[in-house]
Computed example of a mutant assay.
Amino acid sequence: MPATRETAPPTRTSARPGHRAVAVALLAAGHPLPATAVTLLTAVLAAATGRGAAGCAVAAGAVALGQLSVGWCNDRADLRRDRLTGRPDKPLAVGAVRPATVSAAAIVALALCVPLSLASGRPAGTVHLCAVAAAWAYNLWLKRTVVSWLPYALAFGLLPAFVTLGLPGQPWPPLWLAVAAALLGAGAHFANVLPDIADDLATGVNGLPQRLGARRSAVLAALLVLGSAAALVLGPPGPVTPYRWVLLALTAGVLLATGRGRGRVPFLGTILVAAADVVLLLARGAGPL
Rank of each mutant, 00 (worst) to 15 (best):
F162A: 07
K143P: 04
P151W: 05
R144V: 00
T145G: 12
L177K: 09
P173C: 08
L154Y: 04
P171N: 00
L150N: 09
V179C: 13
P173K: 12
A180G: 14
L159A: 02
L154N: 03
L150P: 10
F156N: 10
V146Y: 04
L158N: 03
N192K: 15
A186K: 00
V147E: 11
L175F: 12
L165D: 03
R144Q: 08
H189K: 13
P174C: 03
P151S: 04
P151H: 06
W176D: 00
I197V: 15
A198C: 07
I197C: 11
V193F: 02
V193M: 08
L194N: 02
D200W: 03
W141Y: 15
Y152R: 11
V147I: 14
A182C: 02
G157W: 09
V147A: 13
A181M: 14
Y152H: 15
F162E: 00
T164Q: 01
A180L: 11
A191D: 13
L150C: 08
T145A: 07
L158G: 08
A155E: 13
W172A: 15
L165R: 01
A155L: 12
G185K: 04
A198M: 03
Y152W: 06
W141Q: 10
G166Y: 02
D196I: 05
A178L: 07
A180D: 12
V146C: 05
L142N: 08
W176S: 02
A181Y: 10
V147F: 15
R144H: 11
L184N: 10
L142G: 09
A181W: 13
V179Y: 02
L159W: 04
V179A: 09
G157P: 01
A178N: 04
P173N: 03
G166I: 01
L142I: 06
D200E: 08
L150H: 10
W141M: 07
L150V: 14
W149G: 09
N192T: 08
L177P: 14
K143N: 13
W141E: 06
D200M: 04
W172I: 11
G169A: 09
F162V: 06
V193G: 12
V163M: 04
G166F: 03
F156I: 09
D199V: 10
L159P: 09
A191S: 15
Y152V: 13
P173W: 06
P174F: 01
G187P: 00
L184H: 14
A155P: 13
L159Y: 01
L167A: 14
G169Q: 11
W176M: 05
A161F: 05
V179D: 08
G185W: 10
T145R: 06
L158P: 07
R144F: 00
G169N: 07
L184P: 01
A198T: 14
A181P: 02
F156M: 11
P160Q: 09
A161L: 06
G157S: 07
A182D: 01
P160V: 03
L175A: 15
I197Y: 12
V163I: 14
V193W: 05
F190A: 14
A178G: 12
L175E: 06
L154Q: 04
P160I: 01
T164V: 04
V163R: 10
L183H: 05
L177R: 10
W176P: 02
P151D: 02
A188G: 14
A186Y: 02
L158K: 05
L167G: 08
W149E: 15
L150Q: 09
P174V: 01
K143V: 06
V147C: 15
L159K: 06
